[in-house]
């Protein structure tokens, strides 16, 4: 009887010791401003002392959990394009939590870089809600039977959001820059100084219309936003061997059946892609243009930059024809943003 009591006591001690380890767990819910759970949100816990970063993602119910975090002080963060940065500093993970219990931190996200202005995307949504549907009909063709991509094209705002909210698998240096840009809410983006943004690498996708003029040997994109135009050579030439880096690079295209495959190299490293992602001069973009019918142009772009991405990224957008539209002049002349931000 006495040995049984000792055995029970030993078991209890072992159980109690197991429950009081040098680590703890953290869990909570991720929800939006309407208190609705938000799934698939990457949550990071950074151990301040060691610099180790632990990652979790919210479930379909918006719940996340870190198991076995070493006791210590952590910075809990959510950094995404779609939401304003969430950062909780000096969060203590205590050791010795009873088994099965976890510390709790709920994360409320607010809309990222909100479009509260009377313009930009809200106005674009407004505009698209009132626009007539694109015309129906077969893909028009040139006299030599190639698809004719000419026309004024507009990018539906839903495609803008999906194309530019990419979060590529990045190398550490690029990931660090992305975090910094998300934390300061993209205050230094090139367009703050009237310089090109995403249109550098996506000339056929934009907030404002793009007009394609196609001839047998040349396709020209007239871009209403910031950059005026970009040429795609269809005359069989190759990229020059001594390209100087430029914002939009050098583009040559050739037909693969009914798809125009555009190869672009020679970028500088100044533009930001996917809103906040850096790249190097090694960036290589292959864009496949396919006019699905009279009213729709599919743009599939694959980004490869071995110095930045761990694997290539592909975006797909479908522009709509806007035969009632014409290009406006857009000269970036009064961007007072920089002086406002720099005045802080």
């Amino acid at each position: 009887m006495r040995s049984l009591a000792i055995a029970i006591c030993l078991c209890w001690c072992a159980f109690a010791t197991y429950g009081q380890t040098g680590s703890g767990s953290l869990s909570g819910s991720v929800y939006n401003a309407d208190h609705a759970p938000v799934p698939n949100i990457p949550v990071e816990a950074k151990n301040v002392a060691t610099g180790n970063i632990y990652k979790a993602a919210s479930s379909t119910k918006g719940e996340y959990k870190f198991d076995q975090l070493a006791a210590g002080t952590y910075e809990i963060s959510v950094l995404m394009i779609l939401y304003r940065p969430f950062v909780r500093k000096d969060f203590r993970i205590a050791a010795g939590q009873p088994q099965g219990q976890s510390q709790h931190l709920d994360i409320q996200l607010s809309p990222g870089l909100t479009a509260t202005t009377l313009g930009e995307l809200p106005a674009l949504f407004e505009l698209f809600s009132k626009r007539p549907p694109p015309p129906k009909g077969p893909t028009p063709r040139t006299p030599d039977e190639k698809p004719d991509l000419s026309g004024v094209w507009m990018t539906p705002p839903s495609y803008l959001l999906s194309a530019f909210s990419q979060e590529p698998d990045l190398q550490p240096w690029a990931e660090a820059i992305v975090k910094e840009r998300l934390l300061n809410e993209a205050r230094d983006k090139p367009s703050a100084r009237c310089l090109p943004d995403n249109e550098s690498t996506e000339p056929f996708v934009g907030l404002l219309p793009v007009k394609i003029v196609q001839t047998r040997g040349l396709l020209v994109a007239l871009i209403e936003d910031v950059i005026a135009a970009h040429q795609v050579f269809l005359d069989g030439r190759s990229h020059p061997s001594d390209l100087e880096p430029t914002w939009m690079g050098h583009s040559v295209g050739k037909w693969d059946g009914d798809t125009l495959v555009i190869d672009t190299v020679g970028f500088n490293d100044k533009s930001w892609i996917f809103v906040v992602t850096p790249h190097t001069g090694m960036l290589h973009v292959v864009t496949r243009l396919r006019r699905l019918d009279l009213g729709h142009l599919q743009i599939e772009a694959t980004y490869d930059d071995p110095a930045t991405f761990n694997k290539p990224v592909t975006t797909t957008v479908v522009d709509v024809l806007a035969p009632d539209e014409e290009m406006d002049e857009v000269v970036c002349e009064n961007n007072q943003y920089t002086e406002h931000v720099n005045a802080k």
Partner: peptide, 25 residues
């Protein structure tokens, strides 16, 4: 989730297609 946010009335302006960052200013 983007579409849900839109339907919920949050019209997001990705900084990508804004001409500067609203939240920075």
């Amino acid at each position: 989730s983007i579409l849900i946010a839109l339907l919920a009335g949050f019209v997001l302006a990705g900084p990508g297609q804004a001409h500067h960052s609203f939240s920075a200013e």
